[in-house]
Design a protein around this nucleic acid. Sequence first.
RNA 1: GGAGAGGUGUCCGAGUGGUUUAAGGAAAUAGUCUUGAAAACUAUCGAGCCCGCAAGGGUUCCGAGGGUUCGAAUCCCUCCCUCUCCGCCA
Length: 435
Amino acid sequence: MIDIQVLRDNPELIKEKSAQKQVTVDTESLLKLDQGKRELQQHVDSLRERKNEISAQMKTLTAEGKPDTALIDQGKMLKVELAEREDLLKKVEEELSAALRLVPNPALDSVPLGTTEADNVVLRTVGEKPQFDFDPKPHWDIANERGFMDKERAAKISGSRFVYLKGGLVKLQFALMQFVIDTLGDESVLQRLIDDNKLAIPAKPFTPVIPPAMMRTEPYIASARLNAEEQTYKLDRDDLWMNASAEHTLCTMYWNEILPAEELPIRYIGYSTSFRREAGTYGKDTEGIIRLHQFDKLEMEVFSTAKTGEDEHKLLIAIQEYLMQQLGLSYNFVQKSTADIGKPNASGNDIDCWFPGQDRYIETHTADYVTDYQARDLNTRTKVDGKTEFVHTNDATAFALSRILAAITENYQTSDGLVRVPEVLQNYMGGVKTI
RNA sequence: GGAGAGGUGUCCGAGUGGUUUAAGGAAAUAGUCUUGAAAACUAUCGAGCCCGCAAGGGUUCCGAGGGUUCGAAUCCCUCCCUCUCCGCCA
């Protein structure tokens, strides 16, 4: 949620910044709603003040043994009026916060303007595309031949976009997970990345977390990540949603809490199975394991002060690129435009990995800098020099495991239909060099 | 799922209808004392919202939401969570 104070001080800015994201914000009616709410609140406060006065008088009179029936009648009338005004205030408050939630987080000035995904900017291309002396296959051909995936039976049991993942790819996934957890727990690696990027933040390691995979409606809405119509599964009997990313149950972790400043930054590497309905994507990426209803993901989440939020964002990006380079995968590093960063994010980057078997780049990573937009609604705060302020949140993919498995399969395939294991993962695979 | 006990501020904890303006203690911060520290003493010490240039004032919050009452942390209802026992279960 945006800061209402910014809207009051500079409605034109909000209007303009929202337009950059193709969102039309009626600031006039928002401000009118806000004004009405404040007047109503003053009225309610003064009625409550009167209520407290009557109550205090009544107490004295009762103690003296001479209750005043006129005063009681006054209290009764006041009660009716107060109830009416309080109901109205509640309605107006709900209306205002619902309207405020529709206002997107203003993009940082460094974010390029755009109207479609096509306006994203490739900032750099890193790594060499592998060369083959044969026609590289898409990962599903290799995986099917090697018995690494079974989508037919998964469709029979669970429907489309599910998979039984088997054998070598499963072992590779566990190796990837170990590799990531070890890397993000290694302060010397973090320190090097911090120095290389000239960041003013500590090399505090990431704590691995397995968060809940379901969450209640209230925190999910506050997280600004609930995509109820298209993406998120709901368990109606229990008021629970299946999380669509570990990030969703991680960013909500300190809902309604004040974090001691000395505990910041808090860095987590979360592992969770992620569930997505993928409504509206019928016919897209139907083959292989690029787009599934269920996939496992390692996601980084950082809580920091406002001061270091942007540096944390840069660190997460540096980690993403380091991980990709360690795997020897070629990628485009993309600065997303205002059209594509998403409503809650102030800035965002993607990594699009090269998939030689499909002769195209596919998005495998995202890094989002959310500033205080999530924290305001989640009410996650910290104290800086005695002042309470909202924390800044950052989230970024470490590895979306199924997509990286697919990428490794395509990039590391051999002419005899095997898949070589990237060097950094071999130790986690008991020294095995191919699967 | 059944039976019972609970949920109060950073923490512990008192409070069963009206000076609760949430006691008391601990922790924390500052000061006094001290060569320094500890101890002791003194002071400060929750979070919102609204009005105000400010000083300050008003108001809300005792798990959440309703209700009763002139007045609710306190009484009633629903829900959530925690603990104990039973049942089921990886």
